[in-house]
């Protein structure tokens, strides 16, 4: 059962999973944050693609345009993009502080240092 109309969503899911894999498998904190960013953009893409109407145009009223894409997902995703950059700034600030404290941004090295402190 292959519906070409769903192909869009499936490719977006693959993109999303690329981001999730980076977050799980990579030990470098900046790499993890980049992965999180890819995941966020994919989610935004998913919402925007749900709002698309075939034959529609961008939701700006004008002479001679009748069919518009759905403006509601666009609005919600605008908010999401700006919130994403706020969280990104905070995450990067945490990375800089971790670098100052532990002198590394690799997850396993931080774990080793923590374990060494306790033992």
């Amino acid at each position: 059962m292959f519906d070409p109309g769903l192909l869009n969503y499936w490719i977006i899911m693959i993109l999303m999973m690329t981001g999730l894999y980076t977050v799980i498998a990579k030990g470098n904190l900046i790499k993890k944050i980049i992965g999180l960013g890819i995941f966020q953009v994919s989610v935004i893409m998913f919402f925007v693609s749900m709002g698309k109407v075939r034959g529609g145009t961008a939701p700006i009223a004008g002479e001679g345009f009748e069919v518009f894409s759905n403006p509601v997902p666009h609005v919600l995703m605008l908010t999401a993009i700006v919130v994403a950059v706020a969280t990104l700034a905070f995450a990067l600030a945490l990375v800089v502080r971790i670098k100052e404290e532990y002198d590394t941004i690799e997850e396993d090295e931080i774990r080793e240092l923590e374990a060494g402190e306790e033992g």
């Binding site: 700006i60 666009h74 994403a84």
Partner: peptide, 28 residues
């Protein structure tokens, strides 16, 4: 996909400010 407002926000914020913040972090 007809989301022009999302597109220019993403280009300004996602490609601009995010990259800038990441590069600033890399430098330290």
């Amino acid at each position: 996909m007809d989301a022009v407002d999302v597109a220019f926000t993403e280009a300004a914020v996602g490609a601009g400010i995010s990259t800038l913040l990441m590069l600033a972090t890399l430098s330290v």
